[in-house]
């Protein structure tokens, strides 16, 4: 391990004086990105302001009588309850994932040999189990534990789903922490948990913040577990309400798009808060 890895611990972006030259290629890419992402978004937002009849058909693609019906229909007491549920589930799952993934990633980064390699491979393979295939086994477990219809079932399932992902993402950050730092502390007589807590964790806080954000975002959108483990729809989070819009008897397109926008807005707010953190911390593998 070379000493250059130390630089990761002290990201150097906040100067604002970074010299970025905009080449024609960069400008072209920006324009392409803008087009490719603005058009679908525009379509989503336009549709959410349409009447059901105006969704299909080119004559009403751009010019139509805008209506707030879809949003008016979406803003119900259930929506607020669902927003609350989404917050509880996403926050708690993220906390659990971090609580488990941080020590695990730390361990996997520090321990050497064949074991961590096998562990890492297993984590990757675990990611491959289709989520649909986990529903029935989980249902049995939660049924046995009498946890069905509780937030805890969904939270635990989400946590089990996301923890391997979080460990893979977190591990390189811990590898970037120079072991010398810990050695120095242990010579000073600090106890092992204290070393971890007050020396290692602060160094990797960007990585942790990044992983936390990503886990939060993914859990926020997860609906399969919510739909299956809640027996009453009164407890559904936003993502599950969204799944409710689709059926073979007809899809309420404006309703679906409006709920999509409503579901995604909190994420945008979260992103603007963590924008600084993300831009400094998302350096998963800038680490050897």
């Amino acid at each position: 391990m070379s000493s250059s890895t130390v630089t990761v611990a002290t990201p150097r972006t906040a100067h604002g004086r970074r010299r970025t030259r905009k080449s024609p290629a960069a400008i072209a890419i920006r324009i392409i990105l803008a087009i490719v992402y603005v058009i679908p978004l525009l379509w989503i937002v336009l549709t959410s302001f349409k009447d059901k009849d105006d969704v299909i058909g080119s004559s009403t693609a751009i010019f139509f009588q805008p209506t707030l019906d879809a949003y008016r229909a979406a803003f119900t007491p259930e929506l607020l309850a669902a927003l609350g549920q989404s917050l509880v589930i996403a926050t708690t799952s993220t906390a659990i994932v971090l609580a488990v993934a941080i020590p695990a990633a730390y361990g996997l980064a520090r321990v050497r040999g064949v074991l961590p390699t096998i562990g890492l491979s297993l984590l990757i393979v675990l990611q491959m189990v289709p989520q649909t295939a986990t529903v029935i086994p989980f249902f049995q477990v939660f049924g046995g534990l009498r946890l069905l219809d509780t937030n805890l079932a969904v939270i635990l399932a989400d946590a089990a789903l996301m923890t391997p992902f979080a460990i893979i993402l977190l591990r390189p950050f811990f590898r970037a922490v120079p072991p010398a730092l810990e050695e120095a502390a242990s010579v000073d007589g600090a106890r092992s948990f204290r070393i971890f807590w007050s020396i290692v964790l602060p160094v990797v806080r960007n990585g942790v913040a990044t992983t936390a954000t990503l886990v939060f975002l993914i859990v926020w959108g997860e609906f399969l577990y919510a739909v299956n483990f809640f027996l009453t729809p009164g407890n559904y989070p936003l993502s599950a309400l969204l799944a409710q819009q689709v059926s073979s008897y007809g899809i309420n397109w404006p309703g679906l798009m409006a709920l999509g926008v409503i579901t995604s807005l909190p994420i945008l707010v979260l992103f603007s808060f963590t924008y600084r953190l993300l831009k400094e911390g998302l350096t998963v593998g800038a680490v050897k």
Partner: peptide, 13 residues
Amino acid sequence: LALAGCAPAGGGG
């Protein structure tokens, strides 16, 4: 955390 965050939901299924 988990226990604190999740009182069993109401509406007895």
